[in-house]
């Protein structure tokens, strides 16, 4: 399988001398769900956010489908971001817009602001949005305002918005951390199945080790800004978890 995303020697420091990422080397194939686990503050979020450049990288290269995206900006950056979908912990919907409008937000990169303002979206986009609403089971909610939805419903809208981009890579920054256990499982199922159906790699950054083991095809464990485990979920042992999270009392 060919490599879609290749990260080499990536570092990042928000404050000089306090590195958050200390040299990350990771390659991602064109399929499969990768869970990035690690305790808070180890740079998981930073890593995911650097990939679509919501955070600027320090040293190193990030090559996405043959294009180094670590130094691009302006129009080039916007065009890159259109190809990468992102799901957020706090859903980040536009609260006062309808569910349909929130989905169409995923197409904003392809439309002039004026056309977007006048809601002149191509018919194709609107049909795609209705299809995705069926997929996430919210067909009857198209015209409801996003702030009237529950957490799980919001996150499903967030995923549908990312899929509206027809992304070539799907990133999710702690998508289940604000949700209850049952909804978390449903959200992970949706991310996994959509990744497979659309034949795109999915990168999920998460806290819940059991959930990661259950859904991931590959687990990346991080601690202190470095990758300390990278492999199949079945090979993740308690020793690895001790290394990733520190201590062992919590494992009992």
């Amino acid at each position: 399988m060919s490599v879609v995303l290749s990260i080499q020697g990536l570092t990042k420091a928000y404050k000089p001398g306090v590195p958050v990422l200390k040299g990350i080397d990771l390659d991602f194939d064109e399929r499969g769900l990768t869970a990035i686990i690690g305790s808070s503050g180890t740079g998981k979020s930073t890593l995911v956010r650097i990939i679509n450049r919501l955070v600027d990288p320090g040293d190193g290269t990030i090559v996405f489908k043959g294009e180094d995206l670590s130094r691009i900006h302006g129009r080039q950056l916007r065009e890159l971001r259109r190809r990468i979908g992102m799901v957020f912990q706090e859903y980040n919907l536009v609260e006062r817009l309808s569910v349909m409008e929130n989905l169409l937000c995923g197409r904003l990169g392809y439309l002039s602001p004026l056309k977007a303002w006048l809601r002149r979206f191509p018919q194709e986009d609107i049909e795609h949005a209705y299809q995705l609403l069926d997929v996430i089971g919210l067909s009857n909610f198209a015209n409801q305002r996003a702030d009237s939805l529950s957490g799980g419903q919001r996150q499903r809208v967030g995923i549908a918005r990312a899929l509206m981009q027809r992304p070539e890579l799907l990133l999710a920054d702690e998508p289940t951390s604000s949700l209850d256990p049952k909804t978390s499982v449903e959200i992970m199922e949706l991310l996994k199945s959509q990744g497979e159906d659309n034949k795109i790699p999915v990168l999920v950054n998460m806290h819940d080790v059991e959930l990661a083991k259950r859904f991931a095809d590959r687990i990346v464990g991080m601690t202190g800004g470095r990758v300390v485990f990278d492999g199949l979920p079945s090979r993740l042992t308690d020793d690895h978890l001790k290394l990733i999270y520190g201590g062992e009392g919590w494992l009992q």
Binding site: N52, L54, R78, E79, L80, R81, R82, I84, G85, M86, F88, E90, Y91, N92, L93, V94, E95, L97, E101, C105, G106, R107, L108, G109, Y110, L111, P113, A116, W117, G158, R161, A162, Q165
Partner: peptide, 22 residues
């Protein structure tokens, strides 16, 4: 709130679209 704006940015929206939609 910064979150919704960040989401639009991540979808590749221009500054103008961010103002009108976010």
């Amino acid at each position: 709130p910064r979150g919704s704006i960040e989401a639009l940015k991540a979808a590749g929206a221009t500054q103008g679209s961010q103002i009108l939609y976010g």
